[in-house]
């Protein structure tokens, strides 16, 4: 990553810090102020970052978009910002102008669609490619985050050629990126809590049992973050990279949420505490766009179908980092 990419991500973090307060997240969960919040986020221009410079974007690719998605996960952005960022990039790459001011989610096969209640549009797979449709949420908001169990596709706004699978790959990659960011913040909150909360006359973090748990938490977070980063190397979403990223994020999420809540104790699950804002979303992303078993089976088949003689060759050729 170049200094310029870091600069963009840092600027985005500062923007989020002023806009996405925990109060704003809670208001959004009650359906309040979301239109204003989206307008403010959209006006910042970061959701257009993948558009070419002549169309008002920053012309960044997926690799440079990853730090923004990670930051959105860290900040617990309650609206489908990351999804819109990537969807606008996909649309523009196909010569379709993104709907002005529109918030876009990924439709398609998934028991939950995070952010569906805040989305004006959805990208969905179609017979010969992808459709951008007007979208309305279907079913319950199971996790109280503004999600839905599906989207009702309305008028087709644009038809894109290409592989219909692009939708699920983008959706799973973005979910893995957001989970990676959110898990990073959950780790930070757990470390802070362990440093401040006193029991038996010492801070929790002084207990070896807690230290060992937090070390495992850190391992899982960093491994999931590395895997998610890998899904964003290259020009497009590769099924092998996405499969590894979503599988790893989902597996890590279970361990991370369990340890974080164990370290926090019951207070971490209360409405007034922020931890649950993150862990409820992490659990929703776990259920969205393919479970670890789903992606593991795909990844396993890809390994068997590949001509790489050894698994180490497969890791190197299909799942390695790319540095510009």
């Amino acid at each position: 990553m170049s200094d310029e990419d870091d600069f963009l991500a840092e600027a985005f973090r500062r923007q989020l810090a002023s806009v996405i307060t925990t109060e704003a997240i809670r208001r959004a969960e009650r359906g309040k102020g979301t239109a204003d919040l989206w307008r403010e986020l959209d006006a910042s221009g970061f959701a257009d970052a993948m558009l070419p410079e002549e169309q008002g974007g920053a012309g960044i690719g997926l690799t440079q978009a990853f730090p923004l998605i990670l930051a959105a996960g860290e900040a617990c952005v309650p609206l489908p910002f990351a999804e819109t960022l990537v969807a606008r990039g996909l649309l523009t790459a196909h010569g379709v102008a993104p709907p002005s001011g529109g918030a876009i989610v990924f439709g398609g096969a998934s028991p939950v669609i995070p952010g569906a209640r805040f989305a004006s549009h959805a990208l969905v797979p179609s017979a010969g490619g992808l459709h951008l449709v007007l979208s309305s949420p279907l079913g319950d908001d199971l996790f109280g985050t503004g999600g839905a169990t599906g989207v009702a596709p309305g008028e087709v706004v644009a038809s894109l050629p290409g592989d219909p699978e692009t939708v699920i790959l983008a959706a799973a990659a973005v979910a893995a990126g957001l989970m990676a960011g959110a898990m990073g913040r959950v780790m930070e909150m757990s470390l802070r809590h362990a440093g401040e909360r006193q029991q038996f006359g010492r801070s929790l973090g002084k207990f070896q049992a807690i230290q060992q748990q937090l070390a495992v938490l850190a391992e899982q977070v960093i491994s999931a973050q590395v895997a998610a980063r890998t899904a964003f190397f290259g020009a497009g979403f590769d099924p092998v990279r996405v499969a590894a990223a979503k599988c790893r994020a989902n597996e890590a999420a279970t361990v991370v949420c369990n340890i974080a809540h164990a370290v926090h104790g019951a207070i971490g699950a209360t409405a007034e505490f922020d931890l649950q804002l993150y862990t409820r979303r992490i659990k929703q992303w776990q259920l969205a766009y393919g479970s670890d078993s789903h992606w593991a089976a795909r990844l396993g088949r890809s390994r068997l179908e590949s001509r790489a003689p050894l698994t180490s060759d497969f890791l190197r050729l299909r799942l390695g980092a790319e540095v510009a």
Partner: peptide
């Protein structure tokens, strides 16, 4: 396992590959 494995075995293999992949990157 061959080209058409039992789905459970494919998932088992995939899970192991998914855990190995970030580790190799971390080693590099």
């Amino acid at each position: 396992l061959g080209a058409s494995p039992d789905p459970a075995d494919a998932a088992r293999l995939g899970r192991l590959v998914a855990r190995l992949a970030p580790l190799r990157e971390m080693s590099v």
